[in-house]
Design a binder for these strands. Structure first.
Length: 197
DNA sequence: GGTAGGATGGGCT
DNA sequence: GCCCATCCTACCC
């Protein structure tokens, strides 16, 4: 499928989609289409990072230079750098002023697959191209340059199919964190081979 | 099939 | 100075 076909058969998610509880947004983003430039893929794995007493969330220590976008208006990208080499994409949820964001951990490639392969030649299979948060940003070409951008317009957007088909959602604890390790806040499309681990 | 360890740099106390 | 929401390779079953 090419980028042109993806855009013809889908429409951009409105900001109201994101102005809800973070868990609703994390579940709702499954099956939606992440588009950046000529690359596109179906979101297959997400994690919710909440406000309040969720100590695993970057927002848990309040507003800093890094975390300010998480407290801002919904439907914006929060991209951070970790482990000296990887970048991770989140999308801000909740109404303005309330912290909450959704980590996009994996997507099933749809368009721009040649470009994705060029950006990550070590990927063994198509499904593994955008499997894992660091791999996903790498093949989509997403960096901290996209931190704070509006994902309801522009070159980094999330779209929904005009006709979406049903799937089952599997819920597990989040991966790779040190706090709140048993909270059921990771959501995957059951049986999807793009999912990490 | 599995896992231990290293690469690497910005954020925050 | 010590985290850290990761990934890859090497090596072992």
């Amino acid at each position: 499928m090419e980028w042109r076909d993806v855009t013809m058969e889908s429409r951009i998610l409105p900001r109201s989609f994101y102005a809800r509880h973070t868990v609703e947004v994390a579940r709702g983003l499954l099956g939606k289409i992440l588009v950046h430039g000529r690359t596109a893929g179906i979101i297959a794995e997400t994690e919710a990072y909440l406000g309040g007493d969720d100590l695993a969330a970057h927002s848990a220590r309040g507003v800093t230079n890094r975390t300010r976008v998480i407290f801002g208006p919904p439907g914006h990208a929060y991209v951070y750098f970790i482990y000296g080499m990887h970048e991770c994409l989140n999308i801000v949820a909740e109404p303005s002023g309330k912290p909450g964001c959704v980590l996009i951990r994996a997507a099933q490639p749809l368009a721009g697959i040649d470009l994705m392969h060029k950006r990550r030649p070590t990927a063994r299979t198509l499904e593994k191209l955008a499997s894992g948060p660091g791999n996903l940003t790498r093949v989509f070409g997403i960096t901290r340059a996209q931190n704070g951008v509006d994902v309801t317009r522009g070159t980094l957007v999330v779209r929904q199919w005009k006709k979406e088909h049903a799937f089952e959602i599997q819920v597990t604890p989040r991966i790779g964190i040190r706090h709140c390790t048993d909270w059921p806040l990771r959501f995957v499309i059951a049986g999807n081979s793009a999912v990490s681990k």
